[in-house]
Design a protein around this nucleic acid. Sequence first.
RNA 1: GCCUUCGUAGCUCAAUGGAUAGAGCGGCGCUCUUCUAAGGCGUUAAUGUAGGUUCGAUUCCUACCGAAGGCACCA
Length: 551
Amino acid sequence: MIRENIEKAVKEALGAFGATDVSFVVERPGSFEHGDYATNAALAAGKFLKKNPKEVAELLTKELQGKIEGVEKIETAGAGFINFTLAGTAVKNIVHEAHEKEWGSNDLYKNKTVMVEYTDPNPFKVFHIGHLMSNAIGESIARVLEQSGAKVIRANYQGDVGPHVAKAIWRMKNSGIKIADLQSSAKAYVEATAIVEDNPEVQPQIDEINKKIYDRSDPEINALYDSGRKASLEHFEELYKTLGTKFDCYFFESESGPIGLEVVKKHTEVFEESEGAIIFRGENQGLHTRVFINKLGLPTYEAKDLGLAELKKEKARFDSSITITASEQTEYFKVVMAALIQIHPEWKGQFTHVSHGMMRFAEGKMSSRKGNVITGESLLMDLKDAAKEKMKERKIEDTEKIAEQVAVGAIKYSVLRQASGKDIIFDQEKSLSVEGDSGPYVQYALVRARALLRNAASAKIVPPQPAGPMPVERLIIYFPEVVERAANELEPHYVTTYLTELAAAFNSWYASERMIVDGTITSRSLAVVKAIENTLAKGLQVLGIPAPEEM
RNA sequence: GCCUUCGUAGCUCAAUGGAUAGAGCGGCGCUCUUCUAAGGCGUUAAUGUAGGUUCGAUUCCUACCGAAGGCACCA
């Protein structure tokens, strides 16, 4: 890694001037005019050495000359930056490294096991867009960690008991439904919620059903519950397949509930009774006070999450567990974590929470093509239809699979292109037209690179043209460090941004220069196209975005 | 009311305290006899307000304005 070498050399050079404890960075400069890497070491050391930063930069530049392998030019610029330009041969070597299978991997999480919990849909309710977001982010975090050497356990935690299930069953029972599928139970849940809002007096009936679901004392309720749960889970499984996720383990609230209940009851030093419920006084730590066991004696989501932590620990040895949910649960999680580490101080720092923003809709565009409320599925279907239209224009066969890949790519990209935690404004028009800064744009660049390689297979390879590195080549070298940064910060969007930039550079090159001329291709062009192909493919893989054969 | 997060171009997003704040969409103007035009080229336009820290602030701190989320038996 050339960047590490530069960093080391700069550190040594600083040491030579007695500035050993100065913190600095070696990073990609804002523009290629400033070389391939730049450091602010002189700016940072200026104060320490009581010298003008520019002067320090001159001294360091002199000290560094000729000392870093693969670096051709070192110069001082601006207020005191030191810019490094790689030698053409070094760039060429990296382009060849980019052909390798391991390209883009790093050791950040070597020998670590990480459990990543995401998606977390609820049986009896629709798979909504929030679940799609959690899935896209969770899957790419899992993959980024795997690229960084981690063993990842993908976990899914589903709410198969609780008030929402009771509501759905109460309504189904009233409407005389005997066997539930996901659609009918989801509809029943929505109707029940509306009814309860206008008629609070029915709440006790729902509470009663909630209790019966836990103790399984009513055969009619059991039948509705079992069929509904099964139908939901099977349906979700199909979606995971489409989305490219394969979970290693599933947790359910029906399991975590009883365990959580016990944990809360056992730790009287952590929890206290208040108004008939068992609560955790988070307000003592500047957090919210929350109910862990309600006055009916049932565990709330809070207690269930404590139970879940126990279940996770039972299931596997891991160094850390990451849970991905919508940001509305951020404050809630702090309370659960505070309670958890009071119970298990030895687990401190092992459970972390990553939140994603909410999907909001541009005004007046809230319904799907078929006029229904947008769910995760309807969104996918609409995008798929749009992709099919586009393919029809281009006279491409085999539309079904490719349209699905494009649809999944479009939705995942729109989630993964921005830093997590911020809301995503979803504009249906824009998502359906898959141009510019989009998943299909990157997918298309990869398709082009692959078509080029297919055509090049029968071309004659001629010696390379002598010329300095092209922008697209100089871009390739950053891929491994981008992946590493994404893993370090659990922010896949760095990869998304980078891929789009690489795809744009490739498209620009592609439009300006013909690579295969009269049945020949230069070995240099071939090497670069191969490197681009592998980098785009790896990058999309890390994001969990499928790569279509043609588009 | 209290707590958390966030205000960047007309719109949607980038920018580990550094160089001329980058993209896409939209608008305007070009570009397919040539490896896939879902492409390319050019052009237009921005750090909410007021202070502070710093050699240097979109980034850190304070206040204000605005938005989103949370705040007892929902998840």
